[in-house]
Design a protein around this nucleic acid. Structure first.
Lengths: 230, 230
DNA sequence: ACCTGAACACCGTTCAAGT
DNA sequence: ACCTGAACACCGTTCAAGT
């Protein structure tokens, strides 16, 4: 399981290759397992050599975040905006859950890279040509991004893994059910009546939220157009 | 500025006191500056002594997250649900921006503490007695929590500090304005026409989002009641 | 131009030992 | 019961030195 053979060796070290290797390491072992020393070994080089290509570990982390944003396709210009933004939200969510370390990293990074800026630029462009004013575009992006990032945050911190195999986690939960129903009766009721039922998967909440937000934006957009027309 | 005198010394060490001191240290110097050794010094004790009261550093981090949730007041039973949930959202946001490390920590912690569970229990209780079904309560909490946490995440990672003194940050931005307007024209336009205008503060976007979500929930709630009545 | 060894100032944690 | 010193296996980073 543990790849002791440097996968990224051979080819010369560059900042880009270092960032890619760091993303692979973080995907495999979590962000807390990523060290400059391990990253160097993966690249077939000593730790100190990295500093020739990269300013610091923070520089690597910045690159990783930008790499994540680079993976997200932009909504295609000309598409109907509601369904395009729905698909886009799903794409962002899936990228963030594919790289669970990214959402925590965003918090500390304050210098966005080219891919991040390009991504923002593309979404703004899409909304403007869909009839959004600048202010409405800002509203829409802030609202949707906050929701999608926040949802990914909640989703990755759930004790359960994928929708299917809740078995291990639920066993623990059920064993604590007695204590819980005394101390936290409403939480226990929600668990029993809803969350622990066979059909339930937390991921399904995403569709409800995105749908509600898009519907609300459509209403706000129509109201803004109306007030302009008058 | 740097408090070299142990503020929490004197009184005996307990898990609770260790967690409180850790929160103060993280508030002051950021989560990455928190070490077991510094925490011990703050408590007037050697690092190894902490392990008598606390299982591990992760145990301290779990306690810190729970401490943050313990600071959030619950919506008062009996209040009108929309304004109560609006106030509650604002309360959560203000706690999370007061402890900027909390939002990043949530990501890694998977074992909620008593305050966290109690908080969830209280919100569920409030929604149920406000007429929400169990499924609608789950929808509302997932949606609102995701949005509020996500907004706090965005807000703390902004390069700008408080609404007033954007001067230092904007200076940088303006200096890069030329490069940006070439590479990212729409982003540059949004900055120029909206974000850099005197009146703008990102925090104001919060009200728009919460309002839209609450409005959407009210509509969904009415629709659900309607379908039951039929 | 690219890489390295040695070194510095840190980490979290264990464990046997002190009072 | 509560605290400690010494020690282990790690960190990120600098710097002079190698090819």
């Amino acid at each position: 399981m543990n790849s002791s053979a440097p996968v990224f060796a051979r080819e010369p070290v560059t900042r880009e290759r270092a960032v890619r290797a760091a993303m692979v390491l973080a995907d495999a072992g979590g962000i807390e397992s990523l060290s400059m020393r391990k990253l160097a070994r993966e690249l077939g080089v000593e730790a100190m050599s990295l500093y020739y290509h990269v300013k610091s570990k923070d520089d690597v982390l910045d690159g990783m975040v930008d790499g994540v944003f680079g993976e997200i396709p932009l909504p295609p210009l000309g598409a109907e905006w509601k369904s395009a933004m729905r698909d886009h939200s799903e794409a962002v969510r899936s990228v963030l859950t594919r790289h669970p370390w990214a959402i925590a990293l965003v918090d500390t990074r304050t210098s966005p890279g080219a891919a991040t800026l390009g991504h923002l630029d593309g979404v703004i462009a899409f909304l403007l040509q869909s009839g959004f004013s600048m202010a409405m575009a800002a509203h829409a992006m802030s609202l949707l991004d906050s929701y999608v990032h926040g949802f990914a945050l909640q989703e990755t911190s759930l004790p359960l893994s994928e929708s299917g195999d809740i078995s291990a986690a639920t066993e623990d939960i059920i064993r604590q059910q007695h204590l819980m129903s005394e101390a936290f009766p409403h939480l226990a009721a929600m668990a029993e009546e809803l969350i622990l039922k066979p059909g339930y998967a937390y991921g399904n909440e995403f569709g409800f939220g995105v749908g509600l937000i898009l519907q609300g934006l459509e209403t706000a957009l129509a109201a803004a157009e109306e007030s302009v027309r008058v």
